[in-house]
């Protein structure tokens, strides 16, 4: 019997296991979690013949290196990056056959932040509340990978896709985030709401899986104090006391007391996951459909 597992040789800056997360438990204080760039995670599953929602690896900036213990098909997408097998260049954004014992290296991102690595059979760590995702806020799910971690793989369920290179959006040079105002835009001065929707922000280096932090004009409050804690949604733009908007990403807290000035459309969040620190950000108001 082959040993279906993946040995981690170089874990990289932050590599986690991600699937579609664990929605439905927010009332217990459990964040949603899951891949930040969902379309990229879906793509690598499709390319490797996995069902949608199989667990993949999410790397941060500098990739990772692995040695599968059995023959596998892998695919890398999301942030563009060099891929090699035993030192020989291999395709990015397409299925790649990796023989047992070969060294698969996912190099540093050429642009963007997070690369996704799909492996035929999926990463088969034990699910927690129906998900294999690492949740960095609450600590649920597997710990971030470390050198030497051995990840179990599931059984492949389907043939890999027959494509050469799948088209993908390029990581953004400017991040345009469409928002609907509220629910707490009334907590800010009209000037602050105008500034939020017209001034230039930049992605802060303090961004992580919990939130995309920004640098830019501080938003002045029309009323002081804190709200009683209230439920928070994915994409909520929370404004802490320093006045700089924070866009909540997958590992966001389920409740919070800072006012939410607006909510980013879900379709714009994958691009936010790929925006490097320093990327210009614009918030653009749209009407609810």
């Amino acid at each position: 019997m082959t040993d279906r597992a993946l040995a981690v040789v170089r874990a990289g800056a932050l590599t986690t296991v991600q699937d579609r997360g664990r929605p439905g438990h927010a009332h217990l204080g459990v964040p949603r979690s899951g891949a930040l760039d969902g379309p990229a995670a879906d793509l690598v599953n499709r390319l490797t013949g996995n069902p949608p929602g199989a667990a993949v690896l999410e790397t941060t900036l500098d990739g990772c290196t692995m040695r599968p213990r059995s023959d596998v098909t892998v695919a890398v997408a999301g942030a563009p990056c060099p891929v090699t097998v035993d030192g020989r260049p291999a395709a990015w954004g397409a299925p790649v056959r990796v023989p047992a014992g070969a060294l698969l290296d996912i190099g540093p991102a050429v642009s963007g932040v997070r690369a996704y690595v799909g492996v035929s059979g999926g990463i088969a760590v034990e699910p927690v509340l129906g998900s294999r995702s690492t949740d960095l806020l609450s600590g649920l799910g597997p710990a971030p990978l470390t050198d030497g971690t051995v990840l179990p793989l599931g059984r492949p369920t389907g043939p890999h896709a027959r494509v050469d290179v799948a088209p993908q959006p390029a990581p953004p040079a400017e991040l345009v985030l469409r928002v609907t105002l509220g629910p707490r835009d009334g907590w800010f001065t009209p000037e602050a709401v105008r500034a939020f929707l017209s001034r230039a922000y930049r992605v802060s280096a303090a961004s992580n899986r919990i939130g995309l932090r920004t640098e830019g004009p501080a938003l002045e409050r029309a009323r002081p104090g804190e709200l009683p804690s209230e439920g928070m949604v994915l994409g909520a733009v929370q404004v802490p006391p320093d006045g700089r908007p924070v866009v909540f990403l997958a590992d966001h807290p389920t409740t919070g007391g800072y006012p939410v000035i607006a909510v980013v459309r879900a379709a714009d969040l994958p691009a936010a996951a790929q925006a490097l620190p320093g990327t210009p950000v614009r918030f653009v108001a749209v009407h609810r459909r």
């Binding site: 927010a26 009332h27 209230e230 439920g231 928070m232 409740t255």
Partner: peptide
């Protein structure tokens, strides 16, 4: 999601 809080309930 039905998320109660101090003075609110969020329906997501």
């Amino acid at each position: 999601e039905i998320v109660p809080a101090a003075r609110t309930v969020l329906l997501d």
